[in-house]
């Protein structure tokens, strides 16, 4: 037991020399490493981390902007489409109105032409009928004239006629 104590005692007795040198070295290390190593290293790591964070943020931002841009484009397209539709509709309406107007106009013109034609026809017809009547009258007179001439060409025949006429009168 005693030998064990003698063996262990130097193990747990801190030597003044090593305490001195450790303190010195440790303080020097803290100062030197702190100034020439940890400060720049930690600074650089921090800077990089901040850079990464910033890059991520700006990427996110760009994404949002892109989204907005796309949405804007969509909107403009939609607007253009609506405008086009409206224009088309208007054009169609104009065309229809022009066609209808033309149709109406041509119809009245046709009607007018028809009416005047019909009037002319009626006039011509009336004129023709009048002429025909005149000619028929003239013809009838000529025929009557000729018939009379032939009927009354001999005395016998004149007598006969008078007889026939007289017969008719006798009845009354």
């Amino acid at each position: 037991m005693n030998t064990l104590f003698i063996l262990i005692s130097p193990l747990v007795t801190p030597g003044i020399g090593l305490i001195f040198w450790t303190t010195l070295c440790f303080l020097l290390l803290i100062v030197l490493l702190g100034k020439y190593a940890w400060k720049p290293i930690l600074g650089a790591i921090k800077e990089r981390e901040e850079g990464i964070t910033k890059a991520l943020e700006s990427a996110e931002k760009a994404k949002l902007e892109m989204k907005e841009l796309v949405a804007g484009n969509e909107k403009i397209l939609e607007q253009a489409r609506a405008e086009r539709d409206a224009m088309l509709k208007k054009a169609r309406e104009t065309k229809d109105s022009i066609v209808n107007e033309a149709k109406a106009k041509s119809k009245t013109e046709a009607d007018r032409i028809l009416a005047s034609a019909r009037e002319q026809i009626t006039n011509e017809k009336n004129a023709a009928i009048t002429e025909l009547k005149n000619q028929v009258a003239t013809l009838s007179i000529e025929i009557a004239e000729k018939i009379l001439k032939s009927e009354l060409s001999s005395d016998e025949k004149q007598k006969q006629l008078v007889n026939t006429l007289m017969k008719d009168v006798n009845l009354n």
Binding site: L29, L32, Y36, A37, W38, I41
Partner: peptide, 9 residues
Amino acid sequence: LLWIFISIA
């Protein structure tokens, strides 16, 4: 340690 970390810095 000084060599390693100062060269890293």
